[in-house]
Design a protein around this nucleic acid. Structure first.
Lengths: 206, 206
DNA sequence: CCTACCGATCGGTAGG
DNA sequence: CCTACCGATCGGTAGG
């Protein structure tokens, strides 16, 4: 990936995130990186190709951050708190790309759309499994893990809409508050105490 | 408002909700109501005018449903649970229009955009006030009402993305589960008991 | 990476 | 409400 290509994707992420994929022209993107409209095609093969690159990259980041935590050691509450923290981390560190992944993926063509849908399902599955495990273990008080998962992920994803890099709260503060809201929401009696050497919570791990 | 006009707005809501405002052409809308592209303009003055009508109507519905509850009697927990229920009710009863209001309003022109932004702020304010009141009264355990409000509203709005009219859950079931997740999330000790004659909870009021 | 261009489609209008 | 059209813009390409 060349520097130019990264510039183009950054510009496209900002525009797709703000105006949507369909509301952004290739000339809008070109203008942001000081190119003529047609010159963009020296670096990309199509507008959808740029969308795919952004979406796929962000999907990998979310997954790579959450998977080891979800399948790692610790109680369900510990793991879920860490997953909330990693999700918040990915969103705040790359808001535009995360926003495109979360809200513009539907503009992909059929085959890529199916791939992203599967990836999204798998990611949601990580959360649902941890929530269901916590419920089964009596750690959470949740009667409908599927709805609880959808509720929680929607709340987390909304961050991409309202997060401002220059805002009042940083990644750590948001992760803290979100974790509390999630764990309380699921009826966790209290944050599970970390056992020495197995602390995967946000503050110590990132 | 004529029957035709309503048909047009319904078609536009479905398309704007699924493909976005910029991803929908006036001819797409016309096709859904069996009109030629240009004939649409016998009923509407512009594409943006259709968007505005949908957005403004939905905004009024959300507000009209939530305002009396927010400012009505009852504990903060009671009022908030009822607000969650009314929000879920508006979303499930008119998912497409709600979806357009929630996610396509940014495509409005400058002056209408400002009006909607203000309306959205006011609506969010209703939730924030109730949450802050509950926190001040010691009814909720919330240290940051602004973040808690953003978290909750994002979770509620996400319903417009995943709700399916033919799905497993109806309005009442979703409202029940959402209310529990919200109240627990805010650290409400337990659902406040309803006093006779002041019961504004979802199941009895709708 | 630019200039110049392609056909297609866009939102919207005229005239009936 | 249709036919026929308007200028503008769209994503993308040819040739250098």
């Amino acid at each position: 990936m060349t520097v130019r290509r990264r510039q183009i994707e950054d510009a496209a992420s900002a525009l797709f995130g703000a105006r949507g994929f369909a509301g952004t022209s290739v000339r809008d993107i070109a203008r942001l990186v000081d190119l003529q409209g047609g010159s963009l095609y020296a670096h990309v093969t199509s507008k959808e190709d740029v969308l795919w690159s952004i979406v796929d990259g962000a999907a990998r980041r979310f997954r790579a951050a959450a998977e080891p935590v979800a399948r790692g050691p610790g109680s369900a509450a510990e793991r879920l708190a860490a997953m909330v923290a990693t999700h918040v981390d990915v969103v705040t560190r790359s808001r535009d790309r995360a926003s495109v992944f979360l809200f513009q993926w539907r503009f992909l063509g059929p085959e890529r759309l199916a791939a992203v849908a599967a990836a999204r399902d798998a990611y949601e599955g990580l959360f649902r499994e941890v929530i269901a495990a916590g419920a089964a273990a009596g750690e959470f008080d949740v009667d409908d893990p599927a709805v609880a998962t959808a509720f929680v992920l929607s709340a987390l994803n909304g961050l991409a809409h309202w997060y401002r890099p220059d805002g009042r709260l940083g990644t750590a503060e948001i992760a803290e508050r979100f974790s509390a809201l999630v764990l309380h929401g699921l009826g966790a009696a209290r944050p599970a105490p970390a056992r020495p050497g197995t602390d995967h919570r946000a503050r110590s791990s990132r």
